[in-house]
């Protein structure tokens, strides 16, 4: 890779499990190579809380609540290229299992009937993100440029994808790197 200006990358996890981020860390020693070409903006890795202007935004997880939308929109606004990383960002994934459970039933179960709850009460604190009726993939909320599937996407796939992007190539995955689970 040429000694060009480093690409600025932001990452976040919405309705996800951070597994995709773990897979990113799984590229192991190649991380050293990677950081020669990229620098991180907002990311759980840097603990920067807001997303500034970036080249690439990587989003793990689907959209399940109002806060997710605000984060996602900030990413879309600030990132030249937006990437949906992993099954949840792309299809809603495991969290979307709740899509056929009525939201009333969800709240009842969590705050009233759950084990160990007595006189449970539904919280109304504005600090708690308010959930949507359903969990959605991020491309149903903002325009997405690239999709990298997997649960999580394999470390090799993430490496290949990022190095392709950094080199200005159209990212292309080999057959074994493409899977949905």
């Amino acid at each position: 890779m040429a000694e060009a200006k480093k690409l600025r990358v932001a990452t976040c996890s919405l309705a996800g499990c951070f597994g995709c981020h773990m897979s990113l860390l799984d590229i192991d020693e190649k991380l050293f190579e990677l950081v020669k070409h990229i620098e991180f903006d907002r990311s759980p890795l840097t603990d920067i809380k807001t997303c500034g202007p970036c080249d690439i935004g990587i989003v793990e997880g689907g959209v399940c609540n109002a806060e997710n939308v605000h984060v996602l929109k900030a990413f879309r606004k600030n990132c030249r290229i937006l990437v949906a990383l992993g099954a949840c960002a792309i299809t809603g994934g495991i969290p979307s299992w709740r899509n056929n459970v009525d939201l009333w039933d969800c709240f009842q179960e969590v705050y009233h009937y759950g084990i160990g709850l007595e006189k449970g009460q539904v919280p109304n604190d504005p600090e708690l993100p308010l959930p949507f009726d359903k969990v959605h993939p991020i491309n149903e909320v903002v325009r997405v440029d690239y999709f990298l599937p997997g649960c999580p996407p394999p470390a090799d796939a993430i490496w290949k994808f990022l190095t392709d992007l950094a080199a200005g190539r159209e990212p292309k995955l080999d057959y074994e790197m493409l899977h949905y689970d």
Binding site: F107, V122, P126, L130, H136, V141
Partner: peptide
């Protein structure tokens, strides 16, 4: 681009359940 679904409308049920109507309960 516009979202595939009505973002604020999709919060209506949760607003009803929690009784919230604050700024963060809307998009």
């Amino acid at each position: 681009f516009e979202p595939a679904f009505d973002l604020d409308g999709a919060l209506a049920t949760a607003r009803l359940i929690t009784g919230r109507d604050d700024e963060w309960a809307h998009i």
